[in-house]
Design a protein around this nucleic acid. Sequence first.
RNA 1: GGCCCCGUCGUCUAGCGGCCUAGGACGCUGGCCUCUCAAGCCAGUAGCGCCGGUUCGAAUCCGGUCGGGGCUACCA
Length: 482
Amino acid sequence: MTVRVRFAPSPTGYLHVGGARTALYNWLFARSEGGTFLLRSDDTDAERSTPEYAADILDGLRWLGLDWDEGIEVGGPHAPYRQSQRLERYREVASELVAAGRAYWSLADPEALERWRKEARDQGRAPAYDGSLEPPPEEVERRLAAGERATVRFRVPRPGRTEFSDVVRGDMSFEHTQVEDFVILRSNGTPTYHLASTVDDVDFGITHVIRGEDLLSSTPKHILITRAMGAEPPTYAHLSLLMGPDGKKLSKRHGDTAVAAFRAAGYLPEALVNYLALLGWSPGDEETIVSRDEMIRRFDLADVSRNPAIFDMDKLQWMNGVYIRAMTPDEFVDRIMPWIAEDLGREPTAEELRILHEIAPHVQERTKLLAEAADQVRFLLVDEVVYDERSWSKVMKGDAPRALDGAIAALSELDEWTIESIESALRGMLEREGLSARKGLQPIRVAVSGSTVSPPLFESLAALGRRRTLERIRRARDRLTA
RNA sequence: GGCCCCGUCGUCUAGCGGCCUAGGACGCUGGCCUCUCAAGCCAGUAGCGCCGGUUCGAAUCCGGUCGGGGCUACCA
């Protein structure tokens, strides 16, 4: 049997890292099994679904490199893949279930239902509605005929229980007294999640349902519907949830968890994928940096952890740095370009591009987030450097004037402007002035870059060019006197 | 309240009855390197929630307890 899995987001919110991880595990499983990864849209909640969210989800998946073989935008034998376009099918299944006695039109009074549930809870019973509040059949028939709107509820067989084996959690068993006669069709004729999702899984031939643990206790409902449709339930695998640093379910409270936000901050998709993959799955040995191919080769659903995982921004950031350092300098320049252009408000010139490529290796190893790179190279691209006042007051004192004067003298008479010649000129200056490298070079760094923190000095000056270097040192020297 | 899931360093995890003096990674601390910051290298820090039981032997199996989480909608 060929594996068929799906990722079925509801476009009622942007794609967040939790959803991305679920999609990733589905994708990894499909790829490792040579199966099909399907993307569908569970958009039965017309109120809350928006095209913007739908687009964000697709963008995010593509950016992460999680390509799908069937579904939205790519089509396939079961199109359409949007639930909003399959409403007729769900109504059809609902009426078949009613006809077969597996579901019924429900006219229970909402307030009475609420009281019933409260009472059950107060008495320590499960607040699972069992259909006992329904009017007699003749009355139901009459009111329905009179045009009254009703929901359709699934008739959960009681006594009874549903058992299944979850790939990551093991054997599960739910007493039906804990499962209520749940609504499958709303009174407005639209299906609930339980119906739509299950019908799609059956119709699309889904073999493995890999999803968040929040759906674990709904699984009996899905199995009940599946069997009532005369189908065999798929294999289920429920992934533990992602938590924030406080141990609570990851949400907006913990900052922006949107995949798009990570992208904008300068995270690399390969780093995010690597991090997410290891958040709940381990290849078994001591590897931390795992390539995509390696993941596919070694991924096994049975190795997925049952523990909830706290999303650790520090580790992700470290990993992003590892991936950034692994790039070639040219690739690095290419990838930081969007941030550079935004920072500059224009595209860099050919000369600026040359400078960027020259300094790239040195900036690269200091970058954890692509967005930071723009800050580090800004001094090479602007006409006038902006001094960081804290840096200025820290180093522009004591021997600073001598260092700056000495640097101007030493650099002015240089024949060639290379990293080596600059270094030997400045080291000679330090020697003559009797200054330590630390004391003598920091003022120059601030004069040229505006900050006590910058890429290596000699390399920076070489990239900046003689004219601009001298200009900046003189300007700083003047400011120091003034 | 009811049902369900989970419980190894601060965090992610390896561990599947003896190989565990519990391993790795991030973080943190110290050192080396060094023109700043990084990177790199070295060292250190820190954990089997608790109580019983099974066993010659338990982080590993069982029971209980405590703690955390999820679900409990005409949301998904």
